[in-house]
């Protein structure tokens, strides 16, 4: 399996490097986004949002962690469906389906490169934030950071696979995904704390795992909280991960069966 994982990684890396301009341009965009957040933070000022006290009171640090982790979440949510759709439209899906490897494994492996890039961007955001905008990460609890990061990836990996199952069946789901992503970004508090939302929206936001992931990651990175102190978010993320992964694997398997039955697997 390791060899297969490496093959997918190497394939996607080779394809990505063959588009050199696009590859390097994406990082420039990421760094410019940090500049944008920095100046918004300057405008708001340190005391503008008391609800940020829980995270150290610094808007840039708050938003930067939000953007960095959301990048990984977006890869999980979108990448699987995108891979399926690309394989359908480029014609590689049929050849891929001839593999004796379970399809959900292929699906995960086909996003390894995207995960690698996302993890790289996560670190890049933090490093550039520290070097250029004075972000302090000295107190971060790395154990907690890794646990939250891994659970976030697993949880949204499941959600992404469920999404890929939907893409297999309905083919074009971009509009629906845009709607879902926007709602998730607003409710979970990527660049503003959920506490500023009206009560009923806050309740809705609490049902989204990204809310716990962001809260846990911010406290771990900016306040140095230990895993024990983050038992709540970690516990809820674990439950979300199990449910979503099961839902994703079973849903994708069912979608493939439906596609095989009605002959729509390679249609797009």
């Amino acid at each position: 399996m390791l060899r297969l994982a490496y093959s997918f990684f190497r394939r996607d890396a080779a394809i990505a490097f063959s588009y050199r301009f696009a590859f390097f341009a994406q990082f420039t965009g990421n760094i410019l986004l940090l500049g944008l957040l920095y100046y918004v933070g300057q405008m708001i000022g340190p005391q503008a949002l008391p609800s940020l006290d829980r995270y150290g009171g610094n808007f840039l640090a708050f938003a930067l962690v939000g953007v960095a982790l959301t990048d990984t979440v977006m890869v999980s949510l979108i990448s699987f469906g995108q891979q399926v759709r690309e394989a359908q439209t480029t014609g590689t899906l049929e050849a891929t389906l001839m593999s004796p490897v379970p399809l959900w494994v292929i699906l995960i492996f086909s996003s390894l490169w995207n995960y690698f890039l996302s993890a790289f961007r996560f670190v890049l955001y933090l490093v550039v934030g520290a070097l250029m905008y004075g972000l302090h990460l000295g107190q971060a609890h790395m154990g907690s950071v890794l646990i939250i990061f891994a659970l976030t990836v697993l949880c949204f990996m499941g959600a992404g696979m469920a999404w890929a199952a939907i893409v297999l069946v309905i083919k074009r789901g971009e509009a629906l995904m845009t709607l879902i992503v926007t709602a998730v970004l607003v409710l979970s508090g990527v660049i503003f704390p959920p506490s500023v939302l009206p009560g009923w929206l806050r309740s809705l936001g609490a049902l989204i795992p990204l809310t716990d992931a962001l809260d846990g990651m911010r406290i771990a990175l900016l306040q140095g909280a230990s895993p024990a102190e983050l038992a709540g978010p970690i516990g809820r993320l674990t439950v979300f991960s199990i449910v979503f992964l099961l839902l994703g694997v079973i849903g994708f398997d069912q979608a493939v069966r439906i596609g095989r039955r009605n002959g729509s697997l390679t249609q797009y």
């Binding site: 297969l4 093959s7 480029t90 490897v101 292929i106």
Partner: peptide, 27 residues
Amino acid sequence: LVTCDERSFYWRLSARENLRFFGALYR
């Protein structure tokens, strides 16, 4: 399976890279 769909390869990869990839995929 030998298909007639010439799009079913990765166009940015070389012939050998394509076959290596499918070799791993087909175990």
